[in-house]
Design a protein around this nucleic acid. Structure first.
Lengths: 148, 148
DNA sequence: ACTTTAGTAAGAATTATTCTAAATTCAACC
DNA sequence: GGTTGAATTTAGAATAATTCTTACTAAAGT
């Protein structure tokens, strides 16, 4: 039973309030679904998981809630090629890696200098707000390194 | 009247042959459209431009040809968020920058070390085939620096 | 309690893209 | 030069993710 931890609920309420938005059961629940398994689910997957505890929630509401969470800055929308958008509650600056075997997406921490270093390659006049870095490849699984 | 330069036509024929594919009028024309204005057009835009010289070409064929060119390695498909796919005949390793004002996409050359440097941040077991780097921001236009 | 506003639900609509089936083209062989 | 068979093109239908619309519900302000 994923229960939104108090600390996350407070962050949610505060972030929503900052945008003049209300905290609702659906928003809280969708957020808790994302926090519970940080595996970059698609909207459909979030919908399926959300319904387990809240069978009356609709797909449209899941889309609305995800969009709201993105607007509030609590969640990041992640795209690769034209696959369905995935959602990620990890707010550190980080890159993504998609394993072409399983399609699963993993967070890759960025050493602090990388982002700055990257922005420095831009010619004069190009001002970047953000940089998306998306690796695509295969994940060599080793017995001793089991990752989620 | 964009005419495929001989050198490009030969590269096309050779690349197609390597995959056991035929060189056709449509494939050649779609390729020439991409080479003519290197502004990362969408499939729809390529369709519109291709029709000017070849009014009978269909949108499906444009999609097929673009896909074929990507398969042959002559063209890169570029995605940002869930916007329509854009096509780019620049095969150097490079990043993309989208100006949020105009939506236009620019190629950004990568210093040779950057790619290698980036791949080195991957944890053990992650083997990247490729990295997409997509900047999003605004382009400060200066009188003396007019770019296409 | 009454009114306004925000949020949710269900399904229709949209959009980029892919699929399907029929028609056409092309390269190789006779 | 015509024939054959596979590859390609075409037009339109189909698909899939997402957004929109409209009515309903819930909450907040008065």
């Amino acid at each position: 039973m994923p229960q939104t931890p108090q600390i996350a609920k407070e962050a949610l309420d505060e972030a929503l309030a900052r945008q003049g938005l209300r905290s609702t059961r659906q928003r809280e629940h969708v957020f808790s679904v994302l926090l519970h398994r940080r595996d970059h689910p698609t909207a459909d997957e979030v919908y399926a998981r959300a319904k387990e505890e809240m069978p009356s929630i609709s797909l449209a509401t899941v889309y609305n809630c995800l969009e709201t969470l993105v607007t509030c800055g609590l969640v990041r929308a992640v795209n690769y090629e034209r696959e369905p958008t995935r959602y990620c509650p990890n707010l550190h600056e980080h890159a993504h890696f998609q394993d072409k075997g399983s399609g699963r997406v993993y967070d890759i921490d960025l050493p602090p200098d990388v982002m700055a270093h990257l922005k420095r390659i831009l010619p004069n006049g190009f001002e970047a707000d953000n940089v998306e870095i998306y690796f695509h490849g295969s994940l060599q699984r080793r017995q001793d390194a089991e990752a989620g």
